[in-house]
Design a protein around this nucleic acid. Sequence first.
DNA 1: TGTTAGCACTCCTTTTTGTTGAGTGCTAAT
DNA 2: ATTAGCACTCAACAAAAAGGAGTGCTAACA
Lengths: 343, 343
Amino acid sequence: MLDERKRKVLSAVVTDYIASAEPVGSRTIARKYDFGVSPATIRKEMADLEMLGYLEHIHTSSGRVPSSKGYRLYVDNLLPPQEMRLSDEDKKLIDSWYKAKVKRVDEVFKETARIISKVTNNVSLLLAPQMSQAAYRCLQFLPLDESRAIAVLMTDAGFVENRIIDIPDGASFDDLRRVAGVFNDECAGYAIDALHPQCLAKIRQDVGDESLYEAALDVINRSLEGEKKERLYLGGTTQMLAQPEFQDVEKVKETLIMLEEEQLLKDILHAHRGEGLSVTIGSENKYDGVKDMSIITATYHLGGELLGTLAVMGPTRMEYGKAISMLNYMNDHIAEIIKQFRW
Amino acid sequence: MLDERKRKVLSAVVTDYIASAEPVGSRTIARKYDFGVSPATIRKEMADLEMLGYLEHIHTSSGRVPSSKGYRLYVDNLLPPQEMRLSDEDKKLIDSWYKAKVKRVDEVFKETARIISKVTNNVSLLLAPQMSQAAYRCLQFLPLDESRAIAVLMTDAGFVENRIIDIPDGASFDDLRRVAGVFNDECAGYAIDALHPQCLAKIRQDVGDESLYEAALDVINRSLEGEKKERLYLGGTTQMLAQPEFQDVEKVKETLIMLEEEQLLKDILHAHRGEGLSVTIGSENKYDGVKDMSIITATYHLGGELLGTLAVMGPTRMEYGKAISMLNYMNDHIAEIIKQFRW
DNA sequence: TGTTAGCACTCCTTTTTGTTGAGTGCTAAT
DNA sequence: ATTAGCACTCAACAAAAAGGAGTGCTAACA
């Protein structure tokens, strides 16, 4: 471990660089952060820190910049504790934002993403729960016309999915209703994925009619198809692009293109599923497009059950403290809000 | 009207500039487009065209660029007719894209926007129908638990909206069902906006119970609240940013910010509502953020009823022919696809 | 009379060259 | 161990110079 002064110097460099986005020199450190020593001494310390891999030089002359390793030490050991908590005012503000905007479950996610990006000035990512992980609640049919009906499928997590189906030849709407009853009796409360192995045989038997059974199963499967993919909510792209690291058109375009690769983003979030709060810094990323970005993820739960993932993504020069505290707070908060939409 | 040769020159300038994005000089025109005359002659013609306001000079020396007026003449009179039609291959390709992706109504819009931007390399905008303009079709309640139910509201255009409601004290689920029946008998087929003045009194009377009546009306109003705002689908932003007009970071950011102003975009599309196909070029735009953009809009209908608006937005240097033909095609096509989701 | 070659001129673009300044690294003195 | 002093590096900026595409005009030509 580094000695006290080296840590102070590293901390100062990181802090200053995060604030200014300019490589920071020994003079600045010595002046702004009251070390009782001269720039030359700081210089020595910085040279050491560079040797150890915590700082980097673009070229001789011109200040130092933290390396990923440097940020890592900073995040793990040097982050001022008071920066890890959100102020009460912030919390109130966030609450009021929610109250004003959120009317449906999916709006929770949208608004959460918006809030996170607004506060952190970086991109926020939100992976919303997979329906197939939620518990099946209820299948219902509504009459539409002689030959069609609307199937409505509900899950524990508050999602309702509907689609129009053709009533199989020879069957009546009442038949559909009966089938729904059978499914509901047998499956209520099970994770939808678990339908298949479990009780299909019994249901088939109870339904009796083969084509009706198939039709109902088809509805469930198709509804799932649309919902199975987790939904990714993205927010704050333009805000992030205002950061000084995006001076260069190529870089901007590159980043925008990266942010459109939904699968990549999902993969990244998946990689940290269930880890609680996780910080991945710059070159620590294994995906190419994000090696100069840092990603902070947090997985949110509801009653012990894994629900989804929140994340902040931005340049490695990022206000880690703020991002972490924000995610921590939202992580708890979102579960509470979703709870209001459960039944 | 310009004489034959002037028009040929203007057409050549526009064509070349659209293709190359570089100011075009007399030499280029004379060489590439076989006029039988020397650059000097072309030069004279270009000077005339500039005098008349069809071309512009950034500074002396360095070729000409079409003005908005120049593009206008080009679009109105000089556009090669064969560029106004999509090839059969393109059509087949588009069809297959739809088939592969679209499963729900809202996916029609999303996919349409994607396709338009993909083909035109510009931003596409799609204003999806307001629910309140659609006809009310059916209101249904589903039992949830002792004290709650799910309300499902359907419209003619294929939208289904659902939300959870509390069953009013003292009422049963069967009461709700009865109320739904009353509403359905009275209102089916009317535009939802027209509910209020029309038959509310009669419904109130039929329902009898005041609190139940209020509850049902509340459901309808709240469902509408979410749906009332037209939805704007946006596609192809990054593709457009690959165009050479976006070399400058400021310009990129500016444009991205403009594209996030949903209200502005909606206003722009609204301005051309019902106009069929409309082309607005650069300075013809009255909104500040888009004075160097061209916008082509088309309003799509379904059985005479106005549904929504499609648009392509991009730099004034745009392949107008392609964009127009694309919009024309999609305009017809989208109605057909939506039809499949109607009942 | 319309067309064209020739030429001077403009002004953007690119390259070159010089200047400045922040910052380092080393050394010798404290 | 610390620091003042100094030579050195290199990006960033600016000014100057060279290059080039293209125009506008004029005078000659068919």
